[in-house]
Design a protein around this nucleic acid. Structure first.
Length: 482
RNA sequence: GCUCCCUUCGUCUAGUGGUUAGGACGUCGGCCUCUCACGCCGGUAACAGGGGUUCGAAUCCCCUAGGGAGCGCCA
């Protein structure tokens, strides 16, 4: 296959779709299928369609629709068409079902629930797959009486699913049964609507989770009955939780917007997601443009993969570090607000980002470690204070306070500040660490921060002096308490 | 139970009959250094098991085990 340039790809228009049911939030598994569909369409210059599969009136909600769209928007997965709602196409489905009925490709069934249950129990006991037995196939049922409509599935032969990811997957028709395509309340069911929509929306490639693989032969049969050519299918493996079990809420964040709120960048999540089940040699970091030009659905793996937050964190840190600091500052601002800080009251947030970007895995962490630039901290970190705010540090801090106090405001910049600290170290015959660390703990409350000169600059003169005084008092109090 | 799918370091993966089984995250050690982080260097660690096919199998076939999905008037 590496020999040819796929003549069909230029001949046909690629159209993919993402078709979530609005019964919850957009989760990472759905987001990845959406990403794959999006990339595949973009890569081939085709269209990406969003379709909301809301035929389950009981469970579908408008909030879910909004949540899904919010997730898509945040990730930047823009669609060319839609959102289409299946509830708005009910008439169309009815027409199709009636046609199938007229052509004898579907039939009415009034089997009571009890009969079906008995049948099922018997089949399970006989160790065969529970299936509808076609009891009503030849019966004439009064359309005015309560009934469902079943699709007349071929009895023999086989359906071969030509999956772009898994290859040929055969299913015997004998394994399939006559599934319900119209409920007794008159509403169409999933397997019917999905087929009608994919055909009428001219979807060329159906990319979806592999939990749909066993539905595919049924859908192909319906498609054929309707006289449509089946699209190409690609069933992508599932995403599992970090423990290898099915992803669920107990694994923490599964919803895409939860990652946004936790301080992740959309490009980091996208980059993480695309590497789950897909790769391009040894490359780990992909821009959206690279994804579009390199992604091919046929290269997707067959095995499920576990979601690993450590790697996501690494990517997120990478992107925080390499993105435009101005953009990061804008995204960081609300996270500062979350912890009660107004970034307009203090140093330029962009400067803070430049100083701190390499130190945070998420925006929330970035906010947390940068709070000291805007407000006095509550308590010293215990081990840091114990180690650095000792009486031995007093002379250095006193000397620093005096020298820094003499600095003019316009000299309050890294170079000058650095020289002051150097001068104090030399004068007291101490190495830099013995001077900078106590100072750092005094200013930040912790033993970790950007370079001490940058740290002082960001904090500003007034707060620096204030905090040194506080540290001196702390040392004295400690000495007094033994 | 039946049908289908899956199985390379802890995790994500490269690999398509001949490789010292490569990379990344994590982890461990080191360098850099005023701290933390970044960065750099190095280490640890895998072909689920068993049979075949073959001169030769991670790669092809079969079986077993383990995991998953479907078998809905859910999607």
């Amino acid at each position: 296959m590496a020999c040819c340039n796929r003549p069909e790809s230029s001949a046909m228009t690629v159209r993919t779709r993402f078709a979530p049911s609005p019964t919850g939030y957009l989760h990472v598994g759905g987001a990845r299928t959406a990403l794959f569909s999006y990339l595949f369409a973009r890569r081939h210059g085709g269209q990406f369609v969003l379709r909301i599969e809301d035929t389950d009136l009981e469970r579908s909600t408008a909030e879910s629709v909004n949540a899904i769209m919010e997730g898509m928007t945040w990730l930047g997965l823009d669609y060319d068409e839609g959102p289409f709602f299946q509830t708005e196409r009910f008439e169309r489905y009815q027409t199709i079902i009636d046609e199938l009925l007229d052509k004898g490709l579907a039939y009415r069934c009034d089997c009571p629930k009890e009969r079906l249950e008995r049948l099922r129990d018997k089949q399970m006991a006989a160790k065969v797959k529970p299936r509808y037995d076609g009891h009503c196939r030849g019966r004439q049922i009064d359309p005015e009486q309560p009934h469902v409509v079943r699709f007349k599935n071929p009895v023999d032969g086989a359906v071969i699913v030509e999956d772009l990811i898994r290859g040929r997957v055969p299913f015997a028709n004998a394994e399939l049964d006559d599934l319900i395509i119209r409920r007794s309340d008159g509403s169409p069911t999933y397997n019917l609507t999905v087929v009608v929509d994919d055909a009428e929306m001219e979807i060329s490639h159906v990319i979806r989770g592999d939990d749909h693989l066993t539905n595919t032969p049924r859908q192909i049969n319906i498609l054929k009955a309707l006289g449509h050519e089946p699209p190409k299918y690609a069933h992508v493996p599932m995403i599992l939780g970090p423990d290898g079990k099915r992803l669920s809420k107990r694994h923490g964040a599964v919803s895409v917007v939860a990652y946004r709120d936790a301080g992740y960048l959309p490009e980091a999540l996208l980059n993480y997601l695309i590497r789950l089940g897909w790769s391009h040699g040894d490359q780990e970091v992909f821009s959206l443009d690279e994804m579009i030009s390199l992604f091919d659905i046929a290269d997707v793996n067959t095995a499920a993969s576990a979601f690993n937050v450590d790697k996501l964190d690494w990517l997120n840190q990478h992107y925080i570090q390499h993105a435009d600091p101005l953009r990061i500052a804008r995204l960081l601002s609300p996270h500062m607000g979350e912890i009660g800080i107004d970034p307009s009251e203090g140093p330029d947030l962009v400067a803070v980002v430049e100083a701190q970007a390499a130190r945070a895995k998420t925006l929330t962490e970035l906010a947390r470690i940068s709070a000291f630039c805007y407000q006095d901290f509550d308590d010293y970190e215990e081990t840091a204070a114990k180690k650095h705010l000792r009486p031995v540090a007093r002379p250095a801090l006193e000397r620093l306070r005096a020298e820094l106090d003499m600095l003019a405001l316009e000299d309050w910049e890294p170079e000058t500040l650095h020289r002051v600290i150097e001068r104090v170290s030399e004068a007291l015959e101490l190495n830099m660490g013995k001077v900078a660390q106590p100072l750092r703990v005094a200013i930040v409350g912790r033993a970790a921060s950007p370079g001490i000169d940058i740290t002082l600059q960001l904090v500003g003169k007034a707060a620096t002096l204030r905090r040194i005084d506080r540290a001196l008092a702390f040392i004295d109090a400690r000495a007094a308490n033994g």
